[in-house]
Nucleic acid binder design. Structure first.
Lengths: 340, 340
DNA sequence: TATGATGTTGTGACCGGTCACATCCTCCGC
DNA sequence: GCGGAGGATGTGACCGGTCACAACATCATA
């Protein structure tokens, strides 16, 4: 490891060829005779030669590396996406690394370190519309957005079909007989919040029900904010019998708050979330939710990025991944008679 | 972004100096007169020149980049460590990126891509004794282990004080009056499992109690494995009144299983975990646990890595981060009379 | 005035690959 | 026997920085 590394020219000398021929062998060029190729390969093995990725990057202007930037790493949603993206990149011989940027200052610093110097060939950005970070994305650089529909037609995006998730969640509650369905949303400035809300709205509308602000509270995706939201419903003289929470964590908070108020779930309160977090079936009761396939989202993001680089003139795509209703024990048939 | 990038020589020409002088300015060398420095800096701004990190890496043989490799990204424990490590690296002008390796084949591929080519200056490896991955770590390359005491004196390590966590968890149950304390462990081949078990053993020993295999089950850190473990206790004609689970997820599984058997927690069964996962207080009951400060572990890892690089001849360090008992509602005073 | 120390700047090679182009050889057709 | 096509290989510049060293100016000292 500490001895001077072998170079392409060392191999060339030992194999009795020029450095260029060695380069050809490494790059699987077909402009090399089988015998020469075999000889060079032997020497490469003997010398334990490894191509120097940094030198190659400099010469080619490409690094065969992607980076995936997310607001943080501890959000399970992001982590699942990152893993999917990594796995897909491995299949294409790209290295995908991840980093997080808690705020747009850190985000900007990352961009500066990675992009102008071409340390990465492309980026996957999770939640680009948080802060002003999408403003910092260099124009013309290969990028894919995750978690938001891209408003920029030159940038591909993948996301859960948030509209459908919201619609189906609300529909599930409607199907169970609920007519007055409260909702806890994510922050208003995030696309997925808006889409999930729109889906909810459509489901109600299709059922001939009004969309009432009084039934809605805004959270920040945390369990605590769900907890707070439920109490706020009560404070508003609203005793919901069904709550659609825009993610599982907030749903968990709602359930906790309800339990403390001695409200039974699901007999007195049905709760549905979105995500299907790994612990969903360990809460009490087990959580009904709209599952999102994070791994698929990550894989698709990598695929779109590779396409963006390979076919820069193609039309960019905006992919939606379908959610899936997972019925557990936090929702049940409406036990009528509450005069809604 | 697409126009040919400015180089150090473009700046030199415009500023009427040599490329070397520009290089000196960039690197804050004091061998430049104030006037020249000012002039060069002006031109750098005018041209929006950015140093080319890849070229610099090639020339210097250093990349100012660290990578943190973990078995996966979705484990909250790992994610917390990664974030801490990232934050600390930012403070030292290092870029820290993360990648995961599900198995040692992937791990080996990552090492090959990153190390011999010097794309990174150092690595933080989480759980190096999973698989045979520590065997793949190149000798003499700056590395820090996280989550395991390093068996290699030339490699620094950070970890939770697992022994103390196990001891204190068991002691907490002893203090509450329990005498027969069951334990659910992690996989035997992991250091932290062994250390946590040893701590538990010592606490029992200090209390004059025997260490009995019959009271112990092995899990894999997942909630499911905790669930299975509890049922296995029952199947072994053991009706534990207190369980120390070596992590929170398994503790959650134990609680779920107990509830399904109509065992009340904590009155009929006290449960303590390790980690203090974010949702710990959203389970029913809220989980008592030994909190580990993941952020501190990550930060320390980066610090150790920087020290390894900066002072290669120093003695390497093995740091233990102290756990902290967080008492919630899953443990309570032993309601005597069970004839233990 | 010669000498040397110090501060500032410039020159060219070098890191380890790739690229464009030149060269050489062989084989084929006329 | 010659021209040309095509395969295989070699040559040197180049990517954008850094390094070692040379060169030059200035000033104090002997």
């Amino acid at each position: 490891m500490t001895q001077p590394r072998k170079t392409i020219r060392d191999v060339a000398t030992d194999a009795g060829v020029s450095h260029q021929t060695v380069s050809r062998v490494i790059n699987n060029s077909d402009l090399v005779s089988p015998e020469t190729r075999a000889r060079v390969k032997t020497v490469i093995k003997e010398l334990d030669y490894r191509p120097h990725a940094v030198a190659r990057s400099l010469a080619k202007g490409r690094s065969y590396t992607f980076v995936c930037l997310s607001p943080n790493l501890v959000d399970l949603t992001f982590a699942g996406i990152l893993e999917g993206a990594e796995a897909e990149a491995r299949g294409f011989d790209y290295l995908l690394v991840s980093s997080s940027a808690p705020d747009d200052e850190a985000f900007s610093a990352l961009i500066d370190q990675l992009v102008p110097t071409r340390r990465v060939d492309g980026m996957i950005i999770i939640n680009p519309y948080v802060d002003a970070r999408h403003m910092l994305v260099p124009e013309g650089f290969p990028v894919v957005y995750v978690g938001s529909r891209s408003m920029n037609t030159s940038i591909s995006s993948v996301a859960l079909d948030d509209f459908e998730a919201g619609r189906a969640a609300a529909q599930h509650l409607l199907d169970l007989g609920y007519r007055k369905i409260s909702m806890v949303t994510g922050p208003h400035n995030e696309d997925c919040t808006q889409d999930r809300s729109a889906g909810y709205r459509l489901a109600l509308q299709n059922a001939g029900l009004p969309y009432e602000e009084a039934n809605i509270r805004t959270g920040d995706w945390s369990a605590t904010s769900g907890y707070v939201a439920y109490h706020s419903f009560l404070a508003g003289n609203l005793q919901p019998t069904a709550v659609f929470s825009q993610n599982d964590l907030m749903a968990v908070g709602v359930m906790r708050a309800a339990r403390e108020e001695n409200i039974r779930i699901p007999s007195e309160l049905s709760v549905i979330g979105i995500d299907d977090i790994p612990l969903a079936s360990y809460f009490d009761p087990k959580l009904t939710t709209m599952k999102q396939d994070l791994n698929a989202i990550g894989r698709e993001a990598t695929r779109l990025l590779i396409d963006t680089i390979g076919n820069p003139n193609n039309q960019r795509e905006h992919v939606k991944i379908s959610p899936q209703l997972v019925i557990r024990n936090s929702t049940t048939l409406h036990q009528g008679g509450d005069g809604q």
